[in-house]
Amino acid sequence: MRVLIDVFVALHIIGIAALLGGFLTQMKAMGAGTARFVPGMLHGALTMLVTGIALVGLDRADDHPVNNIKIGIKLLILVVILALIYVKRDEEKVEKGLFAAVGGLTTANIFIATLWT
């Protein structure tokens, strides 16, 4: 079971890398007001959602304790990120504030995952 959990953790990290990487590659464009949500950001967020749900299920199946409040907050943040990206995914330009919000929420989700014990 541990190997399976580790595989899903790796996939979860790949998802966050795609989401954050997509944001970081658009930082210069954000300064110019031409940033847009690239497909990799949506795919990364969806990967995080699927693997995160799988990880919670696997941890519970393996009798590991799960902090439901932490998971709930992370899920809420991810749903907001997904909603923003999904709604604006076809637009050529996204407002600076909206784009920055996705980056900030993504960063917040990383810090919640790593610092909240």
Rank of each mutant, 00 (worst) to 15 (best):
R60Q: 07
D59V: 03
I53P: 00
A45W: 00
M48R: 06
L55P: 04
L49R: 04
L46G: 01
R36D: 10
R60M: 12
T34E: 09
R60E: 07
L42D: 03
L58F: 13
R36P: 05
D59F: 15
A54N: 00
T47C: 15
D63W: 05
T34A: 05
V66D: 15
R36S: 14
A35M: 09
A45R: 00
D62F: 06
G57P: 12
I53V: 11
V38T: 13
L42Q: 12
G44D: 03
L49Y: 01
V38D: 10
G52K: 14
T51C: 09
T47P: 10
H43C: 02
D59G: 05
A35S: 06
F37S: 00
V56C: 07
T51K: 06
R36K: 14
V66M: 11
L42K: 15
G52M: 07
F37G: 03
V38G: 02
P65Y: 15
V50T: 08
V50K: 03
A61S: 09
P65D: 14
P65K: 14
I53W: 06
G44S: 07
V38R: 14
T47Y: 10
L46Q: 09
L49P: 02
D59P: 00
I53L: 07
M48H: 08
A61G: 08
G40Y: 02
G40N: 08
G33L: 10
R60L: 15
A61E: 07
T51S: 15
T51P: 08
A54E: 00
G52Q: 14
T34I: 07
V38C: 05
T34P: 01
D62T: 11
R36N: 13
T47A: 15
F37Q: 02
V66W: 11
I53N: 02
G40L: 15
A54I: 11
D59L: 11
L58S: 08
H64M: 08
G44H: 08
D63M: 06
G40F: 05
V38I: 13
H43Q: 07
L58W: 13
M48Y: 03
F37V: 02
M48G: 15
L42G: 00
P65V: 14
P65Q: 11
V38P: 04
T34S: 11
L49W: 02
T47I: 15
H43G: 07
D63V: 06
L46S: 04
L49D: 06
A35C: 05
A35L: 04
H64Q: 11
